[in-house]
Each structure stands twice: as structure tokens, then as C-alpha cells.
Design a protein around this nucleic acid. Sequence first.
RNA 1: GGGCGUGUAGCUCAGUUGGUUAGAGCGCGUCGCUGAUAACGACGAGGUCCCAGAUUCGAGUUCUGGCACGCCCA
Length: 1199
Amino acid sequence: MSAKPGPAPSSTDPTPSAAEKAFRAAAASPSFPALEEEVLAFWDEQQIYEKSLARRADAPTFVFFEGPPTANGMPHPGHCLTRAIKDVFPRYKTMRGYRCERKAGWDTHGLPVEVEVGKALGIHSKEEIEEYGVEPFIQKCQQSVWRYMQQWETLTRRLGFWVDLGEAYVTYRQSYVESVWWSLKNLFDRGLLYQGHKIVWWWAQGGTALSAGEVGQGYREVADPSVYVLFPLIAASDAAPKRSLVVWTTTPWTLPSNMYAAVKADLNYAVVEDGETGEQFVLAAALVETLAAKMKRELNVVETVSGASLVGRRYEPPFADYHDRLSDPQGALKSGGQEHWYWRVVAADFVTTDSGSGLVHLAPAFGEVDYEVFSEQRSRFAEGEAPDLLCAVGPDGKFTAEFPEMEGEWVKSADKALTRQLRDGGKLLYQEQYLHDYPFCWRADQDPLIQYPRESWFIRTTQFRDLMLKNNSQIGWQPEHIRDGRFGNFLDSNVDWALSRERYWGTPLPIWVCETTGRMEAVCSYDEVLAKPDVQGTEVWEEAKRANPELADDLCVHKPYIDAVTYASPFAEGARMKRVSEVIDCWYDSGAMPFAQWGWPHQNADQFAEQFPADFISEAIDQTRGWFYSQLAISTMLFGEGASIDVSDSAASGSAGAPSGSAGASTQLADRRSEQAYPHPYRNCIVLGLMLSQWFEATDEDGKKVVALTQEETAEHAGLSFTKKTGKMSKQLRNYRSPSEIFDRYGADAMRWYFFANQAPWNSIIYSDSAIRDSIPEFLLRLWNTFSFFTIYAEIDGFDPTTATDADDQLTPESLASAPTYRPASQRSEIDRWILSELNVAIGTITDRMDRLDNYNACAAITSLLDGLSNWYVRRSRDRFWAKDSQSADKHDAYWTLYEVLVQLTKLIAPFVPFLAERLWQELTRPFGDRVLASVHLCDYPASDETRVDTQLSTSMKVLREIASLGRAARADAKLKVRLPLAAVEVVLSEDTQIAWLQSHDSLVREELNVKSVAYTTDGGDYVQYSVVPNFKRLGPKVGKQIPAVKKLLGEADGNELLSQLQTTGTVSLSLPDGSTLELDSDDIEVRLQAREGWAAAQGASCVVVLNTEVTEELRREGIAKDLIRAIQSQRKEIGCEYTDQIEVGVVTEDADIRKAIECHREMICQETLARQLVMDGLPSVEAVEIENGELFVTRVND
RNA sequence: GGGCGUGUAGCUCAGUUGGUUAGAGCGCGUCGCUGAUAACGACGAGGUCCCAGAUUCGAGUUCUGGCACGCCCA
């Protein structure tokens, strides 16, 4: 890395020396990574980011929220994308005049941290953690949070993501925790927090619940018993035949805890009779045959009944223990009457006939859907009359005394014995093995997980479902389908938020419970607890701090210290208030960031009022149920309609540092809310797609997978055949390059541009070495070459933009106009006006797209502008830059035009590729020294100058470019290379609107096609066959069903005749088959041309270009001269001539054509090659080069 | 099993309110240029727009039903 900053205007020397003042030719192919490192150093040194914010100190805000990543994990390529997207819009908005603060943030709580620490300590169960000690464990967690901080900061900086890392919010900080506490207290006081059961995936051996993500990791295919069990129905009378429900399950160990059997109400059930035993069974009609086939028995249908008719029927439970102990309890229903608590048939929608018997065994303790049915059932009973949950299994996964015969047995190993018991009791109809995916603990992969009920705290989010939906409807989602699709559906099926976690490292639930009465209250800050009567236990923290003064003060609000704090109960004399033991879901932490990042409402009322809601956030799609939801839910509950925000209690509690603005916070926010009740907490959200990798994979002779990241790398493994793969990134396969390698090889701009310009951000994005590498020549290098071209000639000609004495510090086009050599665009040549028009059209498009958060199409507009600049403007203007007279008006026009476009383009690309833009800015503004802004990122984004847009010219130029392209195609077809001049081309157009313009500007075509003359005509009957087709868009609505007839008539008619009719009368009349007549004017039809056979011609959409293929002697000689020029030029380069060096040329040949060509075109040859002399002889001590039919000698002339 | 998304050239992707010759970049082929030159340019080949129905004068685009893949949830 260079120690020096980029070649910015030097601060030590305010007046640049003459040498510094001039442009200097730029390196042909720069090292982008090295360039970027220089720019980074420059930004740091000059504090450009800080300056960019300071310039907008009083500007309107554009609010950005950083979704906090966890610094506990290594940053990976996916983070590059989110961070790049999070960077480009704030940069853009800043240039557009907004103040966009970018407060970083870190998510620091939760199980992943505990797991990391556990790994390091070699422990993983909760027991082991308790044994180790919660206090040292928590301290280790706090330290572990910053494990990869260095890598994160490096990545963030290197990618060019401008964000205030120094001011980052951190979820474990006391102020953050207290904001979260405040919000929870608010919910608690409003009765929105409650305790209930939650069925979780439970790791019995470790005594802990697993998160969905963890469960997902541990699925693997296993064979479980699949049993069809008989539940004998309790018959209405003894006379009735014995009937049993056929119930299917793959978890026999849950049968002792059976509570119900479920049917689907609208399904048909068959009563079948076993041909051998005469027993009767009930199962889904659709599954009778399947089961009969399995059992190899005949099952005769006796009767068919509906599922609904089975509902309410009672049966004998498969194991009688509960039944024996509880007898058969009943309870009063809300609707009046009595109902049995257990062992009856209920209806449930999730029942299907896809597998099993169409009758489902419900053990609500061990299944989430089962539990929902149970809750439904409970709700039917009157207060105090509802059934209790049956659960014969302990948290250790072993049967309890509720199922005495197997007490202490691990449930999963009880399946066999249970099945045997069922068979012995005649209750097993059929048994087989069933292959399915079942989750195991990812930390102990021999331990199967079970679903198990746990006490949990919930937030009553369901109460806010409609408000959240209403809120969601106002969010600007990118892509839009998220709103009514994935996110909308998710909100639609909202269930109460299971908030608590029985873990250690998290925000403690701020609820204290009275040990005597069980009554509870919530607190909103540490100080509020301290202010309670007769507080005890604070010494635990104080001692810890004394013993280790390094301890982060924030830990005082964490376990185990906060757990030790108790106070006198206001509910019962002499009783103590103790905190509940749980911590909360860390998604709640992140969702609280809009206010918690400021410590609001305990402090920073102004910041919060100003920075809420966000104008823009972005994360990947996996956050729909994560951060997108947690933010929306929390904001809706706290700030939405009907919420009451009372921050006075926080002030009253004497919260340390409660700001003076705090009292006003409530009203301020309310005002803001009434202005814009919706949407919040974020107005716009870009949902990013998945990040995939692409690599080459082969299998070696040992059957091991070999991965190569590029085609080239595959060559290192001779003999293996590689296939290209696209898929998820895998640490084990190492099928992707680390971001830092990409930065070192190709640079951050290459990666950024690839992300921004190659696909809409919500598509899955492929992160591959080659894809990123390819964005260099496609865009970065092409732009650099164009810039380099400019500097080469600006240096030669001494172009000096500082002659614009009124130039402002951003070099706006208007201010450059003060230069004496600067002519208004209207006086410049066509091509200058054209590129300026294209520039201003592009500016309009780019700003329009970016304002709509559409980076993809903005980039497309930039690319096409660059294409026009590089492939047409510069190419067609080359000879203007080569022209001898360095002071001609035309040359000045060319310089001013190219300079302006480059300067504007540099600003346009600044948010996207900030490094290259910075370097270009510094190079382009070098002559101005420190009269201009030090960084392009301090500039305003260009505004489109409508007066420079000339749509007519754009259209005409498009036709012209098409003509040139067609001419080349025709030449290629006729095998007449471009260096050979031709006498004429004729261009046949379908309409005359462009002809006048084309005629007056045909030098471009003549040069481009190397022809002596161009003629334009609409009357090309000799070369062209005309045909006429309807203009469907216009005629469709007009004639409707007649369209096919019109098309047919026009197609059959002689096109040439129709055209002449149209030209003379202005209309064409058609007699339709239905007898009516249709008059068509020129807008109703479209004329198409087709080149006739036998001409060297090429056809496009609107014209045909016909070549005159006759090659005269004269033309042939000119062609030879041009060949010779090319040979001399090539030799100039070979002997190392500078652009301006003069040469002498000698040609030795016997070829009469060559001699003649030189004779005729001596002047042109000398001029083009800067030859002082051209002799028909060898040159002394100069080596000859072979040319066709002769030898060529070229030598530099020294002055 | 449910929800959502995707399916267009060898590859990666665009494709506006439905309008009749479906585009770009890369790759490939041919050629050109040789004073932007370890670049650059032009031209060309390459398509059952996943399948099947429906609506319509007209469907890559709208609707219905499938198929495949991906993600999320169960």
C-alpha cells in the first residue's frame, strides 16, 4: 500500500506548479486494488466522510437504519452485498443534498454467542454452564462478542462502506438494554405480556430448546416405527359391534399422553370389517385400499360416514394410566352443558389422507399443531373448567411417574416396548418402518430432539395483526411482491411472539415477581430498580466490579448480577420481589433499535425524533421473519394507533442522565405520528436475494471432491473433468473466494459494480471470481480507457480548463463556460451536441431510477452512456484530437465536451464505484489545485440540463449509427474490407423525415464506411421490395376483429404500389371482406423494406443500405495507400516512436500498383504518419520489414 | 404438506400499460482496427420465451392447471 494519499490537490502547496497544472497521460492499465488503497488512505487522512456529512449539517434528513450484524461471526461474501447496497443509497442521497447519518450497530446477544463460548470451554449443556458458573460464562460472552470485530471493520472500510463505526450502537450496552426494558414495561403495563406454554424443539440431554435455525441444521433421514393403533370407540350400547378408530403415529412414546384423535370434518371415513376376525375399523375412505394392501387382508366397507359425524365420539385411550387415575373428567362449557376433557374425536384442518389413516393421534405436549388444537378445546370450556395438559414425560426426556410402568425410561428407546404392549393388548393393527427426516441436536448428533412444552412469556402480537398489516401496506417494498406475498402472509398468520428464552446471555426480562402473591411488575431502568424500597443484592455486582475493575459496566443489567437484586414487595408485607429468570429473544433487541440505538426515551429525544422512521433499510430475504418483522411489530405496538406512550415514568424514576428533552419526547413523537401515522418504522426496504456461489467441481481418484474457482484453476488438476456448479456457499467445500482475496485481485469497485449493475438486487446473486473479474473490462476499464484517451491528448495539446476563470468548486458546466475557448453547445459540432444530449438524458434517467431505489436500471443508464461516449463519441472524434492545429475552435469544442462529460460522469458514478470516481475526480481537477472540492463525494449530484437535451438529434444519430452498422454488414457480406474505399452507397429509407438531416451530416457515414458519397432516398424500387403491415397498436383498437383481414389484404397487395398511393393521396383504401371500406393513413401502417437479390445490401428496421461495389483503379490505389499507412503506423510503434515523433520512410518495391499508389497519395501518407520524407529506396542502417510485394523502412528523425 | 419466488440464447440476466423481426453482457465464430494498443471495434451464428389449456384480432407479458428448481415455514 502506498503511504501517500492519492494525487489530490496538495495542501502544502496551494498554487500548483506548471508541471502539476497540466494533465498527464494516465497509465494504460491501472491496478485498481492499489488505486483503491490510495484512495482509502486519502479519505482517512482528509476525513472526507466526516466532511461529506458536515456539508449537509442543515440539510433535510434521509434516515438510514443499520440492521445490526453480529460481530461474533466471520463476515462472508453475503455481507459484502448488503453492505454495498447500504452504502450506495446514502452516498447518492448525500450528493443529492440530504443529511444521511449512518450509525453502525452490532447485535451481541443470543445463543450463537453462548455456543461459541461453550465451544471454547469445551462444554455445551445448560448443566455444564451452571457448573462452570454463570458469572464467568457471561463475562466470556461479553468478550467473545468482539471476536471478529477486526475483520468486520477491515471489510467495511475496504468495501468503501461509509458508516459511523465509532458511534455504533451495541445491544448489550446498559443504555440499549434499558430502552428495551422501557418498551417491555410499556407492553407489560398494557397487559400485552403473558405467560403460557410453548411447544419447542427440545434437546432433552442438554436441557435446552433449540432455535428453528439450529433444528434445521440437524435433520437427517431415519427409520422410525410407523404404527397403526386401534382406539376402541365407546359404544352407545353393548349390542353394537366393536368398532375401533385406526390411528397412525410414528412416535409411539407419545401415546401414553394421548388426549384426542383428530379427523378432518369434510373427509369421508369408511367403517370396514376385517374378513378374518370380523372386527370393525374406522379410517379415511381413501386409504382403505392402501392399508388393506399393506396388511394383505381384505377389508370390506360396511358403511361410509363423514368426518363431522365422528366428532365428539369417545374412545378408550391406548394406555389406561391417566384414565385410571383421573377417571374420565368433565368440565362445564361456556355454551352451557358438560363435555369430557379427554379422549374424544375432534376436527382439525391439518388432517390429510397423504399418509397414515386419516385419523391423527394428538398428544398436545409433543406437537405444536396438536397444542393448537388443545388450546382451541380449552377455549370452549368455562373459566376454571378447562382440561389440563397431559404430559407423561419429564424435561430430561424420560417417562415420569405419570406413566409408572416405564418411569425413568428414555422415550425414544421405549418405542419398541410400547409397541409390544399394544400388540399384546390387541391394539396394534399394523406396524412397519417409516423413512423420514427427523431433527437431531446439531451439537450432539446422536441425540434426537423431541417436541416438548415449556413455560414461556408471550407478547400478544396477534392483537396487532390488522394494524401491522395496515402498516405494512404503506411500506415501499422492493420487490413489491414481498408486501402481499411473503411478508404479508407472514403477518396474516401471526401468532403471539414467544419472547422468553431460558438462557443466560441476553437482555434480562425486566419483570420482578412477588414471592408470596405471585404478582408482578416491570421496570424500565436499572435506576428504577435501585429506587425501590429495601433493595438488596446489588453488592454482587459491586463486588465483581471491585474484584475486576476491567469488567464492562454494562454487565450490571445482565445475569447473574441483575438476578441478585431484590426488593420489598408492594403486594405483601414482608415479601420480596425477585426477577423472573428468563432472558428475551434477541430478535426483540434488534427490532427495538429505532429507539434503543439512541437510548430513548431515557435520553436523546431529539435524535430519535429526527431519525425515526427510516427512509431506507435493506437486508436479505431471510430477515422477513427476523428484523423486518421485529421492527414492524415493536413499532406498531409502541407507536401505532391506540398505543399510549408515556415516558414520564422513566423521568420520574430518576433515571441517570434523563435528558431535559425527555419530557417533550412524547409530544414530539406524537406530532410526527399524526403527520405520518404510517408507514413506520421504515418507509422503504430493499429485500436482497440469496447469495450463491459458482465453481468448478470434480472428483479425484480417491473419490474426493476437488474445487476450482476459475476455469484456469481447473487446469492445475490434469486429468480431472470439471463440471460447472451453482449453489450455496459452503465452508467445507470452500467453493467461494474470500472477500479480501477479491479486493486484492480485482478491487472493491469491481465487486460493487457487479452487484449493482448485473441483476436486480432481489434476484439471487452469484458470487463468483469470474463474474466479478468480468465487470472490470466491461465497465471500469472502458471508463478508464476513455479517461486515459483524454489525458493523452490533453497533455499533448496543453488543454487547460483553468482558463475558465469563474469555474466553481464543483466544475459545473455553467461555470466552465467562462473560459474564452468555451463555446456554447449550440455552436459546436453535431457529435458534441449529441453526446451532451445523451449525457443529460442519462442524468435524468439515473436520478429518476435512484430516487426510486432502483440501482439496477440506474447502472444500465450509466453503461449505455459510457458506451455512447467510448464507442461512438470518442471513436468518431479521434481525428479532431489528432488535428494539427491545437488551438482550433473545433478542437477546443472537442476538449470542452469530452472534459465536461468525463467530469459529470465521474460524479454520476461516485456512489457506485467510489474509489475509481475519486481517482478520476482528482486527475480531472488537478489543474485547478485546491480551488475545487477535494473529493468527488463532496459534490452535488449532477442535475439534468434540459436545454441540452435534443431528442431529435438522438433519434437521427440512432438512424445514422444504424446506417453505419448496416454498411459494415454489407461490406462484410461482399468481402470488401473497410480500408478499401468505395465510390458510393445508397441508403433507402422507409420515410423521409430524417433525410434532410442525414444529408447535411453524412461525413460521419462517409468516414465510417470509407466511401466517397452517400445518397439518401425513399424511392428505392430498384433495390428494394416494399411491404406494408398494419400498425397493430393503433389499428387494433380501431378495427378489432378485422385485423387479420387487414393484414392479409396488405400482405397480398403490391407494397410498392401501396406506397406510391400513400405518397400521392396520403391514404390507402382497402375493401374489406365484409363489404366495408377502410381508409388508412400513414400512421395506421408500417412500411417495411427488403433488399432485393443481387445487391450488396443490408437491411435494418427502417432502412436498407446498398453498396456500389465497383472498384476503380483509383479506389484500388487509395486502398493500397491506406494499407501502407497502416504498415508504417505499426512500424512506428514497433520502433518506439512517441505520438509526436517525426519519421522518414523508405519503400522498396517492384510492384507498379504500389509505386503508383505512393505517387498519387504521397501527401496523405506523409501527413497521416508524420513522415518528413518518403523515398522509393531502402534507408541506411535501418532494418527492413516485409510488406506485401516489397520492403518497408521506417526510422525516427532526431532534431 | 403450506406459502413465496424463479423458469427467456452455451452462461449470467433484461424485457414497460398485451401489438406481430424477443434484447444485453460474457462466451463462441469470422473479420477489422493498430496514435485509447497487454487495448479496441464490427459483423455473425445461437431461442419450442418450462409444458398444457384458456382469454384475445393479437400472449414472453393476463388467467387456470401442471412440471422443475430455489427459499421460508411446517
